[in-house]
Design a protein around this nucleic acid. Structure first.
Length: 813
RNA sequence: GCGGAUGUGGUGAAAUUGGUAUACACGCCAGACUUAGGAUCUGGUGCCUCACGGCGUGAAGGUUCAAGUCCUUUCAUCCGCACCA
């Protein structure tokens, strides 16, 4: 058969659509598989990363379908976001027009790859209907106290003109444009993800089997649980007076309660309320005030690399156990958002405090003793015995942690607490192309949610995108509304939601077929969730995957769904590289998927991508290997001439076959066996393709038509998830499509009459012998010795080892 | 600094419980066919050596009859977090 990829692919893409083979069944009694590749942002054209992502997901989905599962394999568009506005500024296109035109174009590109998506469930997150349900969720969260508004210091990206969540700041830079992030005090809406910190941490354990360890570790670190002592440091009477009696104490948190007697000073974040008060009321000299304001204005990134710096605030607190007065400083390395923005400082046993104390000549007090401790050169932070610590002296420091906390608790001085690094999720974005936050500012009622019957709050089309300011804010009429509570004139919130809100629940919307009345039906979600296999890039290890996990739990607690975790199994694919670097327009090393499909076909692109590396690893693009993939498909198509038309597997008397024929059958069934293994979990498609190539090579060294036919019956089945078009074509021509379902393995082909055993002398392989299947150990060993006589001359045999079916090892001296 | 991962031919990569290292492919070499083509087919291809043979999975040790695989130490690369008290 002459291989014309273009005609074959067009024909089958049309057929699949016509026969709706990709649509799941409504029959909920069937066993299901929910296979999901992360949905794309419609940037304009697909790139090789998409091809890889969707080829992997499609192979898994197609395989599940041939195994008889009811398969949900949907696609949609993560279509709100900044690039649409950037395009609007650059090309004077409306973001909506740009976005939906991109979607139409990219949908065609994905179709040309032969991806078996369910069409009926497709949507874009910028569809008003999607916003409607999302806004309703947000209001529900607000009503349950899971969403609140506050003003605080936030991460501000000057180039995107918007606020960023903590997760979206990568090494002090914006996740999207890589610009340095500045700090800015602003009002915004926050989702209380911290209320779920413990559950998000605990449930990582339930994902250990299905998620890569790396992702679990990253999430664990991000949540950052730590246990310790929280207590109050009372200000001295003269300090209280100095602060106009506005403060009498501040709270600190420590994980080193055992070092409590080593405290020699305390330090406040530059943003701490006491520091702000001192500056406002000019209670410090000018040099100190300017030092403090400089510290406040420094970005988070610069603070991370800056030298330790501080200012003596001229106030003091009372040590809760000793009653001593302790100086209070403000230091640039104390974080405002963690543990109350204040710390107790133990320079003898904390590296940061040590460095700071050395710089400003503050006293050190040793309270943990160990032989290897040398406070002249560095802080001692490891294990030891307590000293200078009153009644705790002589205790092991680990035991002392608990003892000190108990002491604080029984004296009413403090308590054991758990702290998390995770912060609440700020979702306000000062941008146009996003889902409006459904709240109204009323001068008498304050901030109130919009009424559900008024949802969705949609974006106005008549805006000019200039990149300066938020068009919703400057729009003449859009924000004017009436208060949903009192009916008086009010103003809409003009911030829009972080686009990660949309991607936090899209997998739920797919469960029901684009229902206009509900986000999803509970019974559909109960049937389809959880996602059995999720496929996507490692770059979402924290961002999207943490938010989606949170949303699932929150929606569960709001009564919408029953899942605890959205994604049972996660496959993080590696990047596609060219010349050792990530493909990118700026480097000019991209390969256009459309061009590859045009030249070789979708099957070739898919085969190369799945064959060149295991999916989790980086994939180096290689033009001649692509050519090689094409040649394999061509050979596969041409050699189909050796097979005969049939509707089921032929009966073959294995014992009557010659050696090559038997080997060919064995290789074919090995490929089938491999297929079952690969889809059961490790997804090593590269080894599966190799097994198929071996099988085809083995078929080529024999001439038995029945063996050829059986081989094609099975290989077209095994390869269908990877190169579906050519496989359907061959299956139709040869087998009336009867081979595209689960095939049982015939174990008889693996039974051998004789075996080949390796013979090693002192562990080094020297020769091999062929023995009959039921030869006994003595016979085998004597044959081995006979055949390897030249290695045994003048040697004394010390030991003879026989590993059945594998090898013989003779140890000599 | 902390955490995670990865080191195997010229290249991408294989290798059940420890059991014939380099499957499969790319590249390269030779040959066949040939309207001399970047087509197709056949054979070869870890390194050193004319050969016998020796050496080989980042490096060094160890356990074992047997180690890519297990243990210890170490080096390199990549990724993530980064003053979280």
């Amino acid at each position: 058969m002459h291989y014309n990829s273009f005609e074959i692919e067009k024909k089958w893409q049309h057929y699949w659509q016509e026969h709706a083979i990709n649509e799941p069944s409504d029959d909920k009694s069937k066993a299901k598989k929910y296979i999901l590749s992360m949905f794309p942002y419609p940037s304009g054209r697909i790139h090789m990363g998409h091809v890889r992502n969707y080829s992997i997901g499609d192979a898994i989905a197609r395989h599940a379908r041939t195994q008889g599962f009811n398969v949900l394999h949907p696609i949609g568009w993560d279509s709100f976001g900044m690039p649409a506005e950037n395009a609007a500024i650059k090309h004077h296109l409306h973001p909506k027009k740009w976005t939906y035109e991109n979607i139409d174009y990219m949908r065609g590109e994905l179709e040309s790859l032969g991806l078996s998506f369910s069409k009926k469930r497709e949507f874009a997150t910028s569809d008003p209907l999607y916003s409607k349900f999302e806004q309703a969720f947000i209001i529900k969260m607000y009503e349950k106290g899971l969403l609140y508004e506050k003003s605080q210091t936030v991460n501000w990206c000057e180039s995107c003109h918007t606020v960023l969540a903590n997760e979206q700041v990568i090494e002090g830079c914006c996740w999207r444009c890589d610009n340095a992030v500045a700090l800015k005090e602003m009002p915004g809406y926050y989702i209380k993800i911290t209320a779920y910190a413990q559950e998000l941490l605990d449930d990582l354990k339930t994902l250990e089997k299905g998620w890569p360890k790396q992702v679990l570790t990253m999430q664990e670190n991000w949540i950052g649980r730590s246990e310790g002592l929280e207590f109050s440091l009372a200000l001295s009477p003269d300090s209280v007076e100095k602060l106009g009696e506005n403060f009498d104490a501040f709270t600190v948190f420590t994980t080193r309660a055992d070092t409590i007697y080593g405290v020699t000073y305390a330090a406040l974040a530059p943003e701490h309320a006491i520091v702000k008060y001192l500056i406002e009321h000019k209670l410090l000299d000018e040099a100190k005030i300017s030092a403090l304001t400089a510290m406040q204005n420094m970005s988070e990134r610069d603070r991370g690399t800056a030298q330790k710096e501080g200012v003596d605030l001229g106030i003091s607190v009372i040590h809760p156990l000793t009653g001593e007065a302790i100086a209070v400083w403000s230091a640039n390395f104390v974080l405002a958002g963690y543990g109350g923005g204040a710390v107790m400082s133990v320079p003898a046993h904390d590296e940061r405090d040590y460095e700071f104390a050395r710089k400003y000549n503050l006293p050190l007090k040793e309270v943990i003793y160990h032989d290897s401790s040398d406070l002249e050169t560095s802080a001692y932070t490891a294990k030891g015995i307590l000293t200078n610590s009153a009644t705790f002296d002589g205790m092991d420091n680990e035991a002392a942690k608990a003892a000190v906390i108990s002491h604080f608790e029984s004296e009413g001085l403090g308590k054991r607490v758990v702290n998390y690094k995770l912060r609440d999720w700020g979702i306000s974005r000062q941008r146009y192309w996003g889902a409006p936050i459904p709240f109204v500012h009323c001068s008498s009622c304050g901030i109130v949610p919009e009424r559900e019957e008024n949802l969705p709050i949609t974006l106005p089309d008549d805006v000019e995108i200039t990149g300066e300011g938020n068009p919703l804010d400057s729009h003449p009429a859009w924000k004017q509304c009436s208060c949903p509570v009192c009916g008086r004139d009010a103003e809409r919130e003009t911030d829009t939601m972080d686009t990660f809100v949309q991607s936090s629940w899209y997998f739920l919307r797919y469960c029901s077929e684009n229902d206009p009345t509900e986000a999803f039906k509970k019974e559909d979600v109960d049937y389809w969730m959880n996602v059995d296999q999720y496929v996507g890039g490692i770059e979402h290890a924290i961002l999207h995957l943490l938010y989606a996990r949170f949303f699932t739990k929150a929606l569960r607690d709001l009564g919408y769904i029953s899942s605890d975790e959205p994604f049972a199994n996660l496959l993080t694919q590696g990047m596609v590289l060219k010349d050792g670097a990530k493909m990118s327009k700026s480097k000019g090393n991209t390969v256009d998927p459309d061009a590859i499909i045009k030249e070789y076909g979708a099957d070739t692109a898919r085969l190369f991508i799945l064959f060149a590396a295991p999916p989790q690893k980086e994939l180096e693009w290689n033009d001649s290997a692509v050519e090689g993939a094409f040649k394999f498909i061509k050979r596969f198509a041409e050699r189909a001439e050796n097979a005969q038309t049939m509707q089921q597997l032929p009966d073959i008397d294995h014992q009557a076959l010659d050696k090559n024929e038997q080997l060919a059958r064995k290789k074919v069934y090995e490929a089938l066996k491999k297929s079952n293994e690969v889809y059961a979990g490790n997804f090593a498609f590269n080894t599966l393709v190799a097994a198929c190539m071996e099988a085809l090579n083995a078929l080529g060294s024999q001439k038995n038509t029945a063996v050829w036919s059986e081989g094609y019956f099975i290989l077209a089945n095994v390869l269908e998830p990877i190169i579906p078009h050519i496989c359907w074509e061959l299956s139709e021509r040869l087998f009336n499509l009867q081979n595209l379902k689960a095939i049982a393995i015939k174990e008889e082909v693996f039974i051998e009459n004789s075996l080949t055993l390796a013979v090693s002398i002192n562990g080094k392989r020297r020769d091999e012998i062929e023995v009959s299947k039921d030869a006994d150990k003595e016979t085998i060993l004597s044959l081995a010795k006979e055949q390897c006589a030249k290695w045994l001359e003048d040697k004394e045999i010390i030991k003879e080892i026989y590993v059945p079916d594998k090898l013989i090892n003779i140890v000599v001296k």
